[in-house]
């Protein structure tokens, strides 16, 4: 049996009358990209929030490397190895690209206490940050203020910041949204090589990217996983076609 990096067991969450996560059990195995697809409002981001610890489930568990992390804060889960990108960019807009990336590395590589040394002159931090920026292709805009980046560049920066944690598993919420075809192609290549370092739970609406990348796909509709399988299995699944894919399959 292969070791499982990340797993949820029966995660359940309701918002009033809306059952936004209905007994969700999915897992992430070494070396894979597990895509999570589903219509708008299906509960994908809500599921990610529970996995990452920003939202508490009503029932169920989250396990990282076989360890129950259900009661750890988001901060502790990051340190335990969950590297997350946000659907809505969570970046310090007044700061530069490099500053945002150095900040990402700070918790894992450095510490913010008892030093008046400039953060950007800390070679360890800066090394990690610059390497991450090279990998996503933002090396030429390192000293640009984040507010001045294009939407696509902000998506790339989200990924770079997650890279700095050197995580055990990546959780990415729509990293390709708004990237444009050139940007999606670049990021698809990056994710393809990244899965070897750490498996990726990928929420994505861009079906070309999903079909090109995913080892497995889970389909979430109205808070329920209606199918999990390989690309071919999912494309052939009638229920999935009706609920989400339509003609795209």
């Amino acid at each position: 049996m292969t070791e499982i990096i990340l797993a949820t067991h029966g995660l359940t969450k309701t918002f009033g009358a809306l059952k936004v996560s209905n007994n969700i059990s999915i897992d992430l195995r070494p070396g894979e990209i597990h895509a999570l697809i589903g219509p708008n409002g299906a509960g994908k981001s809500t599921l990610i929030a529970q996995i990452c610890g920003t939202l508490t489930p009503a029932a169920g568990r989250v396990e990282l490397m076989g360890k129950d992390v259900t009661h750890l804060s988001a901060r502790k889960r990051s340190l335990a190895g969950l590297g997350r990108t946000f659907q809505i960019s969570a970046l310090a807009m007044e700061d530069t690209v490099l500053q945002n990336t150095v900040l990402g590395a700070l918790g894992a590589t450095g510490n913010p206490w008892f030093s008046l040394r400039p953060a950007l002159k800390n070679h360890a931090l800066r090394g990690v940050a610059e390497q991450a920026l090279h990998r996503v292709g933002l090396q030429d805009v390192m000293s640009t203020r984040t507010a001045e980046l294009s939407h696509g560049q902000r998506r790339q920066l989200e990924v770079a910041v997650a890279l700095t944690l050197n995580p055990k598993a990546f959780i990415m919420d729509e990293p390709m949204a708004g990237l444009g075809s050139e940007g999606s192609k670049q990021l698809t290549e990056l994710l393809d090589e990244l899965r070897v370092e750490a498996p990726i739970l990928l929420v994505e609406h861009d079906m070309d990217a999903v079909f090109a990348l995913a080892n497995r796909i889970s389909v979430l509709v109205y808070g329920k996983i209606i199918a999990t399988g390989t690309v071919d299995e999912i494309r052939a699944n009638r229920e999935v076609k009706e609920a989400y894919l339509g003609d795209e399959a």
Binding site: E94, Q99, G104, L165
Partner: peptide, 23 residues
């Protein structure tokens, strides 16, 4: 300009990002 200042400055703008960085 220190790491502390960087984190403080970001905590004002996007607190959840700072937590996600493990701080």
């Amino acid at each position: 300009k220190s790491s502390f200042g960087l984190a403080l400055n970001a905590a004002r703008q996007v607190p959840h990002r700072v937590e996600t960085a493990g701080l």
